[in-house]
Design a protein around this nucleic acid. Structure first.
Length: 566
RNA sequence: GCGCCCGUAGCUCAGCUGGAUAGAGCACCAGCCUCCGGAGCUGGGUGUCGGAGGUUCGAAUCCUCUCGGGCGCGCCA
């Protein structure tokens, strides 16, 4: 998946005061002094994996050495000698390894960041990457033919997290659910419910072969007022099926919405496919495609020339019986999105739909969309694993393990956190045994525990008369290795949000939350927060609070609660 | 046959768009509470990064081929 559309060539502004920009500027001046013409944006700044290599690192000397045919270490030394930095920012610039130039933040700089976190609170890490651009994330959009199942639960967790991450990164985001309430499955649903209703009346009727056999339709049949149902049965067959289909649809959509609510996932909009028919948007979309010369008739059907646009073959838009395909409806839907002004539409689809990406992008392109619009993320399958063994997801009567079953089993927090631990495109083994555990083995509790522990310590400190000081200069007293490591972990949070937004990958945040919790526990174990040394106590309290702020914000974007007590 | 995703420690997976000595959790073993929450901390790793070539100063990462697993290729949605 291309996810670099917001990188340098997109000219996304960066905070000039950010650490990487300050380092970039220092390197750019040094390079200019040496008469080396290197584009400022080509200077790569990265965060070394090993903290012994400093806080920021640049490989610019390695790149330049190649062009100049020079020894990289020698060149790096020349550049490093000319790098001018403020002692309030960096106190060490070193050459290491094959020719990296490493920057180590000064204690003062790191202390400033900690104060900044406490001052800003939840808005710490908010970025301007999106510059307020309108983007849409469409996710789940499961057909309203039954309750939400596990793969939809994963999509719900990922979509909701993505929405929050993108908002934090400065995008104007809309969360949308596309309701397929117009296709042939509504007729199947109608036939199924009609049969269930007649069965409820005691009639011995067979269940339709193509129907939805789930138990939920038996329950829905029971909920229909008997007089209504009988009246529908008296209608001509087609009309009766439609009536039952509509009734089933509304009940099921209601069920889906309450499942999503139970899971803590909110949408800004539920977009109904049927609206595209009511307003004739389907046919106007077809007309537009015809105008653009990409439609032809064959065998009585209307075809889209997708093969010429990168798809495997041409696709049917209108069947020979005159009815539109799902593909045409989807094209109309995406045209509708485009007209709503989204600079990017991010669609989360199941892996069984990956073959549709090319045709959806090419038809959108013809309708005026930019390249890679929509951007489709494939949410890979989930397997449930219990006691080391794969659990069958299907239950008796053609039902599947639902989102509701999962939430009732392990809780919404654990479910979401586990779904977000892997990258979206990777298969996920959901360890039910581990997710159920309320102990240290469970990563969700590990992170939440750190948050609760800090909340408790802050309360204890206040009881002891230690509170956040007005004069925060005491933070510079924090010099223990565990304190420094914790602070270093805290200050990368804004970059982490930016990275997760760019790559559309929430799993960076679950990993980060675990690492931050671990750094805090280490710090807590070694450094007593409330002690007889008042200034030091205040400093450590500020550090604990900064950690709490960042943990809470990480959990918030993941959709997981940050409890003060457990 | 063609296309997409995935092969990294016993298991489940990270690896930040090509960097420095490949990491984490789980499991297993051994330790640590007179003290702010022990749901915690510390120590313990002989990995053909599926395999083979290639590009590069540098490859788990990019390219080609190949083996294995999943999914898809409908006038269904």
């Amino acid at each position: 998946m291309t996810n670099d559309r917001d990188t340098a060539r997109d000219n996304a502004p960066r905070d000039a005061s950010s650490a990487s920009e300050r380092s970039r500027s220092a390197l750019a001046s040094a390079l200019a002094e040496l008469g080396l013409a290197i584009d400022r944006e080509a200077i790569q700044i990265e965060r070394p994996a090993d903290t012994a290599h400093g806080d920021l690192s640049s490989n610019v000397a390695l790149i330049a050495a190649k062009q100049l045919k020079r020894d990289p270490r020698e060149l790096a030394a020349e550049i490093a000698a000319r790098v001018k930095t403020d002692a309030d920012f960096v106190d060490r610039v070193e050459v290491a390894g094959p020719g990296f130039i490493n920057f180590a933040f000064s204690r003062k700089y790191i202390a400033e960041q900690v104060k900044e976190i406490v001052r800003l609170g939840a808005s710490y890490g908010d970025g301007d990457l999106g510059r307020g651009r309108k983007v849409q994330v469409e996710f789940v959009s499961a057909n309203p033919t039954g309750p939400l199942v596990i793969v939809s639960a994963r999509a719900a967790a990922i979509g909701a997290a993505l929405v929050k991450i993108l908002r934090k990164a400065g995008y104007d985001v809309q969360a949308e659910y596309y309701v397929n309430d117009a296709g042939s499955q509504v007729a199947k649903l109608g036939l199924s419910l009609l049969a269930r209703f007649r069965q409820r009346l005691g009639e011995d009727v067979p269940f339709p072969e193509e129907g939805y056999p789930g138990e939920y339709l038996v329950e829905i049949a029971r909920e229909i007022p008997e007089d209504d149902g009988r009246a529908w049965l008296a209608l001509p067959q087609d009309t009766a099926v439609t009536a039952f289909g509509q009734a089933a649809l509304e009940k099921i959509m209601h069920m889906i919405q309450s499942d999503l609510e139970l899971f803590g996932v909110r949408y800004d909009n539920f977009f109904r496919e049927s609206g595209l028919y009511a307003d004739n948007e389907i046919w106007r979309t077809l007309d537009l495609l015809k105008e653009r010369g990409v439609v032809y008739g064959e065998d009585g059907a209307q075809w889209f020339r997708s093969a010429e646009l990168g798809d495997e073959k041409d696709r049917v838009l209108v069947r020979s019986d005159g009815s539109p395909t799902y593909f045409l409806a989807d094209a109309a839907y995406h045209l509708n999105k485009l007209r709503r002004g989204f600079t990017q539409a991010i669609d989360l689809w199941g892996p069984d739909h990956h073959g549709h990406i090319k045709r959806m992008q090419s038809v959108s392109r013809v309708l005026g969309a930019p390249a890679d619009w929509p951007e489709v993320l494939i949410v890979q399958w989930v397997r449930l694993v219990e006691e080391g063994k794969v659990v069958s997801m299907s239950k008796r009567g053609g039902e599947f393990v639902t989102l509701r079953d999962l939430v009732e089993d392990v809780g919404a927090d654990a479910a979401k956190f586990f779904f977000l631990m892997r990258k979206t495109s990777a298969h996920l083994d959901f360890n039910l045994t581990l997710a159920r555990k309320e102990s240290d083995e469970n990563p969700v509790y590990y992170v939440q525990y750190a948050h609760a522990r800090i909340s408790s310590v802050v309360a204890y400190a206040r009881e002891q008369g230690v509170d956040f000081p007005a004069d925060t200069s005491c933070v510079e007293l924090l010099t223990e290795a565990e304190e420094i490591e914790l602070m270093r972990k805290l200050v990368i949070f804004p970059e982490l949000i930016r990275g997760a937004a760019l790559t559309r990958e929430p799993h960076f945040l679950t990993a980060y939350a675990q690492q931050l919790a671990a750094e805090f526990h280490r710090f807590y174990h070694v450094c007593r927060i409330v002690s007889s040394n008042r200034r030091l106590s205040e400093a450590r309290l500020l550090l604990a609070e900064a950690t709490r702020v960042v943990l809470a914000e990480s959990l918030r974007v993941l959709g997981v609660s940050a409890p003060e007590k457990m």
